[in-house]
Amino acid sequence: MGFIWFYIRKIFTLFKCEVLVLPSRVALLVFVVALLLIPAFTQDPYLLWVLILTAIFSIFAASWDLLSGFTGQVNFGHALFFGVAAYTSGLINVYAKVPNFLSIPLAAIAGVLTGLIVGIPCLRLRGTYLALTTLAFPIILTGLIFALPEVTGGELGISGLDRLSTSRVYDYYITVVLMLVLTTIMWKITDSKTGILLHAIREDELAVRAGGINTTRYKLLAFCLSGFFAGIAGGLYAHIMRTVGPSTLEVALSFQVIIWSVFGGIVSIYGPVAGVFILFPLAEFLRILPKVRMLVFAVLVLLTLIYMPEGLIPWIRNKIEKECPRCKVRSIATRKTCRICAASLD
């Protein structure tokens, strides 16, 4: 009993000293709790549908950040991972009758393999050349899809996939919980030794290599990890839509993910998630202005990027929190001294 009480007290102390002291962590907590409680207050199918898609695209956007934000391997064809996984899930579910709880992990594996296939030839390229090469892959695959309509369904794609679950609320919880778990895993990866190396590769690859680290292996790992998470998003999307078509490989989707991520703030994982959670529902809200919907959307994104070049969430975070120049720990902006080392924050 005393053992349990010790842990309860420890959790409470951690909560009090590590969560409640920072507005960003309180906001995250409120966001997670709100997401999990929404179906208890409303089961509006439209709202749940929008949030389901938002959760799926959040995983997708975070996976782009993992590869392009953290590792600096700018991918202009990220829809490739999403589309390959969606088609894999669709093909094995419809033709081989593999249930969705298996087809989605298999789709993720397909994403990993795609990461390998794309990663190996792209490792020699950097910057603009890498970006343009990655852009070509989904276009090539789209061509293949149209060339093999008997298998891929051509223009219409594959339809008749199993539902993700038996109800909209279950769909919601599956996607939202998966989104929370997967983005946490991605965030932990970026915070680990591997993540620091990926970040270092982005900043100065030559220096990392000079340190005796095989950067090729790490870059390939980034492609595979990113493919894995994007693959799960693609598999989930296929079973939610119950149809997989060439739109999952469209260039527009690849650019969409970049807009979400850059808007939210790259090199953070939570930034792209926030970007999707703001922009995707915003596009729905702007249906009240049908004629200028896309224009208003574009202007809002542009203004945000002009005035907040690091993205919305880092900008807000820097306004409400300060980083200690000595120990690098963050404190609320109203404090004069660091909450850990008491160094001056001004």
Binding site: Y46, W49, V50, E155, S159, M241, T243, E284, R287
Partner: peptide, 28 residues
């Protein structure tokens, strides 16, 4: 397109639907 369909059915509570154009979207 799927959001629009959900919106029409769940929020606007339409009795019937007419339209649709792009085959892939109409399937969904």
């Amino acid at each position: 397109a799927t959001n629009a369909m959900e919106l029409a059915i769940s929020r606007y509570k339409v009795d019937f639907l007419v339209g649709g154009f792009r085959s892939e979207a109409v399937m969904v």
